[in-house]
Simulated scan of single mutants.
Amino acid sequence: MREGQGKRWITIIALLCSLNLSAQEISVQGGFLEDSLLIGQDVNFWMSATYPPDMEMVFPDSLYSFSPFEFSDKTYFVTQIRGDLAFDSTVYTIQSYEIDKVQYLKLPAVVLNGRDSIIIHTPLDSIFLTELAPVVSDSTKLKTNLDYQLVDTQFNYPLMYYIIGGLILITIILLLIFGKRIIKWIKLRRLRTQYEQFSEVFNSYINKLKVDPEPELAERALVFWKNYQQRLDKVSFSVMTTKEILSHDFTKELDKPLKSIDRVVYGKRVQENVFQDFQQIDEFTQDRYSKKVEEIKDGK
């Protein structure tokens, strides 16, 4: 409460104390000490009563509903006895969060006299709401501010943990349901990629041998084929001789082309049709690739 307001209600109470207390009637008075209020700001409502000393007067306490106001504090003055009347007074500090332009309040005093109780209200008093901002009308123009405002960013770690946990859970579920299919698809894709790379390079060797059937070129093509066939069949073709390669049951059809290529490579003899031997090897490798694909699809 401001100092000026405090002096004001003290003066009012002092004047009330100076009233003629000789009358034998009960009188309850009250009102706002301020003329206006701001939302949420403390204002003061005074209340006083005169009554015969043999009666008991009760004023509202903090549990009373001061609607539309809210109770904040109160200052109670000790009962004074003057002549044949008693005088009580209290100042309530209250607040309002309503937006009504005029707000009203009256408070009750309860006179206890044996089994009988009498409720007497103060006169209804009003106070005006002071508006800090003008009322916005339809014609009010708002000022646009497009200046960039730098705002500190904060990473949402809890959300990140939820997303990661959800992705892990979804992955586990997918693996349990589609795990075998996914693994099979990965194997087939890798097998196809390796074969396509081999086929592209090996066919380039064959095309070159059609034009230039040199033993050195034939040797490089043979080594390249052995290395790929070794990965495909999981057999160490790269360190095997032709005889050792032909000892396997599935390589019997390579007998003629491999022996013909050996005469070119190791005998250093130019043979114009050597590319046809490599074409037979290419057909063999293609057949082995197709069988591996079927094995993977059958789950072997």
Rank of each mutant, 00 (worst) to 15 (best):
K226N: 01
F224I: 05
L146D: 12
Q197V: 02
S236W: 03
A221E: 02
W225N: 01
E196N: 12
L175H: 10
E200V: 01
L167G: 14
I177Q: 08
L209M: 13
K180N: 13
P215H: 12
R181V: 05
I172M: 14
L176H: 12
D233T: 04
L150R: 08
L232S: 03
I164Q: 04
K180R: 14
S199L: 04
W225V: 00
G166I: 10
L159S: 05
I206R: 02
Y157F: 11
K234R: 09
F155I: 06
I177D: 05
K187T: 05
I177C: 05
I186N: 05
Q230C: 03
D147Q: 09
I177T: 11
L217N: 06
T140V: 10
S204P: 00
G179P: 11
R220C: 02
I170T: 14
F178M: 13
A221P: 08
Q230S: 15
K187F: 09
R231Q: 10
K226T: 01
Q230T: 07
Y162Q: 14
I206T: 02
S139G: 06
T193Q: 06
L176A: 11
N207K: 14
I183S: 08
Q197H: 06
Q197W: 00
I182A: 11
V151Y: 02
R181T: 12
I170M: 15
K184V: 04
K141D: 12
Y148T: 10
W225F: 07
Y228T: 01
W185Q: 11
S199A: 11
R189W: 09
V235A: 07
I173M: 14
L222Q: 07
A221H: 06
R192C: 00
A218F: 07
V201E: 08
D147P: 00
I163W: 12
V223H: 03
W225A: 03
G166S: 12
N156G: 03
K226V: 01
S236G: 02
D147A: 08
E214N: 15
N156P: 05
L146P: 00
N145I: 08
R181E: 14
T193C: 00
E216Q: 12
I172H: 03
T241C: 02
E196Q: 10
S199R: 07
D212P: 00
V201W: 00
L169Y: 07
Q154D: 06
K234L: 10
L167Y: 11
A218E: 04
L176C: 10
Y195L: 03
F178W: 13
I164V: 15
I173T: 12
I172W: 06
L174P: 10
R192M: 04
M240Q: 13
E196D: 08
L159I: 06
D152E: 15
I170Q: 07
L169I: 15
L169W: 06
R192S: 10
D233N: 11
N203Q: 09
L222N: 13
S236Q: 09
R220N: 08
G166T: 09
L167W: 08
L175F: 15
S204N: 13
T140H: 06
I164G: 07
L150S: 10
S204Y: 01
P213Q: 08
A218S: 15
I186S: 02
Q154W: 03
K187Y: 06
T144D: 11
S204R: 11
M240E: 05
I168M: 15
L169P: 06
V235F: 04
I186K: 09
V151I: 11
N145L: 05
L222G: 04
P213W: 09
V235M: 10
F178I: 10
K187Q: 14
V235D: 05
K180A: 08
R181M: 12
R231Y: 01
S199Y: 03
